[in-house]
């Protein structure tokens, strides 16, 4: 055996190759690029203005303070109102909850009907819905404003919910249609043979199977609607401005010096809900992206 001990045996000697170092170097530098703005945001929000004026963006606060957070939440000014970003936070919730529920309920029903029942014109309906997902919203805006003001919903909470439902529908329908397309048609046939009607099959058979896709849909809609700016700005009305619009107003309301620490605190507060959803949902969020992206 003494002659073979010099021979290669066992695992290849593990070497730290330059390529391996390169991989980690790239990943770490990239991670720094992605994390830097978050770091700057947090660090700025707890600095007093005196330190910010020094222009040391990355340095740790010498005298950390939560005052900017309090101001941002309770008494930062948007225009003449000085009630802080909490108004927008509440508005966003009031918009979010009904919009998410209505758009998912509608999307699930339509996706189910399109997948299994294929009524006349289903293909045309789906084609237009799909197109709606890609068309710039600007085409719809003006007539929609006029229609909603005719029925008295312009600048109101129900109005903005309707708008979110309308424009959430393509993605929701696509999501559920694709999901139901993966369910064996034989299951549906069996239910039909057993005498199930449209709603019975939907509520008793399909909906209980749909939990995963409903979770995905909730994640997509919560982040999507919370992050919306355009519709909130145009359709919600002053009383109901969502948090993103309020945030922009806070930042652009300058009386004297711009309070960057307050602005950053308000920004973090606005980003908080989707970030929490993202970190809690983890793989579901990725699944949502895939579900929305993969073809029918």
């Amino acid at each position: 055996m003494s002659t073979t001990t010099m021979e290669p045996q066992g695992p290849r000697p593990s070497r730290i190759t330059p390529a391996r170092i390169g991989v980690y170097a790239f990943l770490v530098v990239s991670a720094a690029f992605f994390l830097l703005p978050l770091y700057v945001m947090v660090i700025t929000s707890i600095k007093p203005m005196a330190e910010i004026r020094l222009g040391n963006l990355f340095s740790f606060p010498l005298a950390p303070t939560i005052e900017p957070w309090i101001k941002a939440w309770t008494y930062a000014c948007t225009g003449v109102n000085c009630e802080g970003i909490k108004v927008g936070f509440l508005n966003s919730f009031r918009i979010l909850v009904p919009s998410v529920i209505v758009s998912i309920a509608l999307g699930a029903t339509i996706g189910y009907a399109l997948s299994f029942w294929r009524p006349k014109g289903a293909n045309f309906l789906f084609a237009v819905l799909l197109l709606g997902a890609f068309i710039p919203y600007q085409v719809f805006l003006y007539p929609l404003v006029r229609m909603l003001s005719t029925v008295g919903l312009y600048n109101s909470l129900p109005g903005i919910v309707v708008v979110h439902t309308i424009f959430g529908l393509p993605l929701m329908t696509l999501l559920f249609r694709n999901f139901y397309a993966g369910i064996p048609i034989d299951l549906f046939k069996a239910a039909r043979v057993d005498g199930g009607g449209f709603w019975a099959i939907f509520f008793r058979l399909m909906l209980p199977l749909s939990t995963p896709i409903i979770i995905v849909a909730v994640i997509l809609q919560v982040t999507g609607i919370w992050n919306d700016f355009l519709f909130g700005l145009i359709f919600a009305g002053r009383e109901n401005f969502p948090m993103t619009v309020e945030l922009n107003n806070v930042v652009n309301t300058t009386t004297g010096e711009r309070e960057y620490n307050v602005n950053m605190a308000a920004t973090i507060l606005t980003a908080l809900v989707p970030l929490v959803v993202y970190f809690v949902s983890g793989r579901w969020f990725v699944r949502g992206i895939a579900a929305g992206a993969v073809k029918g």
């Binding site: 919370w226 970030l275 993202y278």
Partner: peptide
Amino acid sequence: IFLYPYAMSFIV
């Protein structure tokens, strides 16, 4: 880390 910005709005 690479995906979290996608959860945030364009405004933020």
